[in-house]
């Protein structure tokens, strides 16, 4: 089994996440797409750890998970606060700041 399948899968997941961030309108869904991107990075890291025969990549994947967890805490708090005020989590409704 070659490792390139895993890398291609990770690249596809990353692209789906990136496209999702750009086209989806709900802040929670946008945020989930960011998380998908982070997890595709984890897959890439673990695959490269296997390919290079080191454990660094696996350890880095743990770091990424911890940081992603911290990001969820901060992100959901911010999205909650705007949702409670506006009764909507759509990023199109948040349009007071513009040119």
């Amino acid at each position: 089994m070659t490792i390139s399948y895993y890398l291609v899968l990770a690249a596809i997941l990353f692209t789906i996440g990136a496209v999702g961030v750009l086209v989806r309108r709900n802040a929670i869904v946008v945020f989930m797409c960011v998380e998908l991107m982070l997890n595709s990075v984890n897959l890439t890291l673990v695959t490269f750890a296997r390919a290079t025969g080191t454990v660094d990549g696996q350890i880095m994947a743990f770091f990424v998970m911890v940081v992603a967890a911290a990001e969820v805490v901060v992100g959901l708090a911010i999205i909650m606060s705007i949702y409670r005020t506006r009764r909507s989590a759509s990023v199109d409704d948040a349009n007071l700041l513009k040119y």
Partner: peptide, 25 residues
């Protein structure tokens, strides 16, 4: 401002991280 900064900031750090993974590879 906080929501915009957060969503775009998280998006950008995902790019940084994927770059890190590729450089590691």
């Amino acid at each position: 401002a906080a929501v915009k900064y957060f969503l775009l900031g998280a998006f950008a750090s995902a790019f940084f991280l994927y770059g890190l993974a590729l450089v590691y590879g």
